[in-house]
Computed example of a mutant assay.
Amino acid sequence: MEEQSIRVELSQSKKEKPKAVELVFGRIFTDHMFVMDYTEGIGWHNASIVPYQPITLDPAAMIFHYGQSVFEGLKAFRTKSGSVQLFRPEKNMERMNRSNERLVIPPIDEAFLVKAIKKLVEIDQEWVPDAEGTSLYIRPFIISTEPFLGVAPAHQYKFIVIMSPVGSYYKEGINPVKIAVENKYVRAVKGGTGEAKTGGNYAASLKAQEIVEKEGYSQVLWLDGVERKYIEEVGSMNVFFKVNGEIITPALNGSILPGITRDSVIHLLKHWGLPVTERRISMEEMYDAYEKGELEEAFGSGTAAVISPIGELYWEGKHIVINECKTGELSKKVYDTITGIQYGKIEDPFNWTVKVCETSKVK
């Protein structure tokens, strides 16, 4: 589509901003949001930044009945100098279009939406916190809004971006978590929607998550949906294993979400000259490596936590304790490097950061 202008309507009543110690994930929202509509025959139109507000939908809106939706997640960071920057936003928009294709949602103009997100963050820049480990979480999403009960792709959609200031994912430092390997439930299969970022994938994961939490585990390690033996994802994150000096991560196979943090980790490891391999990994292989003393580290990667070290895996009655349940050197180095780039503490040799605005006063 031809790039359109963005109409701006500023809020006349600003919300009180929370203190850094009060920040939790996804509970508090900024003063403004971005909205844009799609109508077949017109395309994406009516791009606007407006005061944060409820939306009104017809009870027959197709999102409620057939779940045609996609979403993304990225963050804005405040640097030491006070400027605000994003981390690889163009990759989020690229992935959103891949999700759109799978869900039969009209494609978006990626460059225009990066511009819109930058504008929204600039307007609400005072909401970007400056305490250690805090950031502004950005949630773009698309829903089908056409009122129709037929099973078919919708002809009307709404694209929305909302934002929420969030605290440090780790309250007391980067600590390993305990993970249970899931054998009963399946997250996704090749040919399904596993590689798309759509709400149904996450709804399907809740039952297994509920069960393992009651047993004292933080997350579920998902196996493939066909043979139930090959490792895919951990919770809502991609996963890496360091085995005898080699870093291994499951290859993207059509059912694994292509994480942007995952891609960043792989880039870093190769930049450091470390051996990194994307391939199929069985849980039995990881257990054999553990038995031989070769399973040195394991960690998940994702937007929220960046890096989440895995201290223990529970599989078929076996407790696999990794690195004495301590954060490994590699996990810590990757975490420190990516967050260092995000917050502008260290050099960004990959041009991953995108400047939104220069110094501003945080109120």
Rank of each mutant, 00 (worst) to 15 (best):
Q53L: 05
S83G: 03
R98E: 06
Q219A: 04
H319N: 15
E16F: 08
D58Q: 15
L223V: 10
Q156E: 13
I322S: 01
E358S: 14
V151C: 06
T277Q: 03
N97A: 07
E110N: 13
A305Y: 08
T39I: 15
Y170R: 11
K355A: 15
E246R: 06
S255Q: 00
E2D: 07
I63F: 10
H155P: 00
E22K: 13
P51N: 01
G259A: 01
G328M: 02
Y287D: 05
P107T: 04
I6A: 04
K190E: 11
M237D: 00
I123D: 00
K363N: 14
Y217T: 14
S81Y: 01
E347F: 10
P165G: 07
F240Y: 00
R88C: 07
R7Q: 08
D58S: 15
T145S: 06
M33A: 04
Q342D: 07
P258K: 02
G150R: 13
K292H: 11
P140R: 06
G245L: 04
K292V: 07
L221K: 10
D348R: 13
Y230F: 10
G225N: 13
G194A: 11
Y230W: 03
K190W: 04
E296M: 15
Q342K: 13
I346H: 03
E246V: 13
A251W: 01
F159C: 11
E210C: 06
I55L: 11
R98C: 02
K184V: 15
I6T: 10
G293V: 14
F240L: 01
Y230L: 09
T277C: 02
L206T: 14
K171W: 01
V354Y: 06
E246K: 06
I49Q: 05
I49S: 06
A61H: 10
L221S: 07
Y137G: 07
T198V: 15
P147V: 08
L23D: 03
P106E: 04
C357W: 02
A131L: 14
V276L: 02
E16A: 12
K229V: 09
A289M: 08
E291K: 14
E110V: 14
T339K: 08
G344E: 04
A204D: 14
S135M: 05
N238T: 04
I338Q: 07
W127E: 02
A204P: 08
H319A: 14
G317C: 10
M33F: 03
I28Y: 02
E2G: 09
K345Q: 07
V166F: 00
R95L: 01
Y335S: 12
L206P: 02
A180L: 09
K190R: 12
P258N: 00
K15Y: 06
T339M: 11
V220W: 06
P107R: 05
N175C: 03
I42L: 11
E172D: 12
A20K: 15
K158E: 13
K207V: 15
K80W: 00
G133N: 04
K15A: 14
E122L: 12
L206R: 09
S236C: 12
R7A: 03
G293R: 08
M286W: 01
K345T: 10
Y217R: 07
E294H: 09
G216L: 12
I108D: 00
